[in-house]
């Protein structure tokens, strides 16, 4: 990453153990009618949550609620063609939209005892477990970047960030992590 401020002190060796970049995955934007959503659940093998801001995971596949008619389906990269074909074939009777957005965004994992503290530097949501429980997912902001924030464990968060905003989000998190290095 390029040095981003004149103030960066070379003496700091930044601990980056709080950050992980997961392997590339299949990402599908699925939108449709309630009937299509129900049908997609059985084809995808994961019940698409009907509660706002909730996710469901079965095995290596997850469905993230993004809006009342919108989901982000996440699966291993190798299953992309299979899943697209299955959904397209099985849902022909139901009004819906399926768009491959695998390359649109990157996944980031922010983890560790300081995960919440790091994210609170740019995310305006209340990340207390009582307000943002495990499995909750939502689009929100990290400073000037839209992100999807998804809590996997009390101290593990999965972020989905649009491709060209990823460097910015990592740089800002790293700026905040400098406070930990001191």
């Amino acid at each position: 990453m390029a040095s981003h401020t004149a103030t960066a002190k070379p003496t700091i060796v930044l601990d980056m153990s709080w950050l992980e970049s997961p392997a590339h995955t299949t990402r599908l934007s699925f939108r449709g009618t309630p009937a299509a959503i129900a049908a997609a659940s059985s084809v995808f093998g994961v019940p698409l949550p009907t509660s706002a801001c909730r996710s469901a995971t079965v095995g290596s596949r997850s469905a993230l609620w993004q809006g009342p008619d919108e989901y982000l389906l996440i699966a291993p990269e190798s299953e992309r063609t299979l899943i697209i074909q299955a959904l397209t074939n099985e849902l022909s009777a139901h009004a819906h939209s399926l768009v491959d957005v695998s390359h649109r965004q990157n996944g980031l994992i922010v983890k560790g005892p300081h995960a919440v503290w790091l994210l609170e530097s740019g995310c305006p949501l209340d990340l207390d477990l009582s307000q943002f429980p495990i499995g909750m997912c939502t689009r929100t902001l990290f400073e000037k970047s839209e992100i999807t924030l998804w809590r996997l464990a009390p101290d593990i968060f999965h972020l989905e960030v649009w491709r060209s905003f990823t460097e910015y989000v990592i740089a800002l998190l790293s700026e905040t992590a400098r406070e930990l290095a001191a």
Binding site: G67, P68, R139, T140
Partner: peptide, 11 residues
């Protein structure tokens, strides 16, 4: 007035 939850559910 109208609002849109543009950085949320989009509605």
């Amino acid at each position: 007035e109208r609002w849109r939850h543009v950085r949320g559910c989009g509605r």
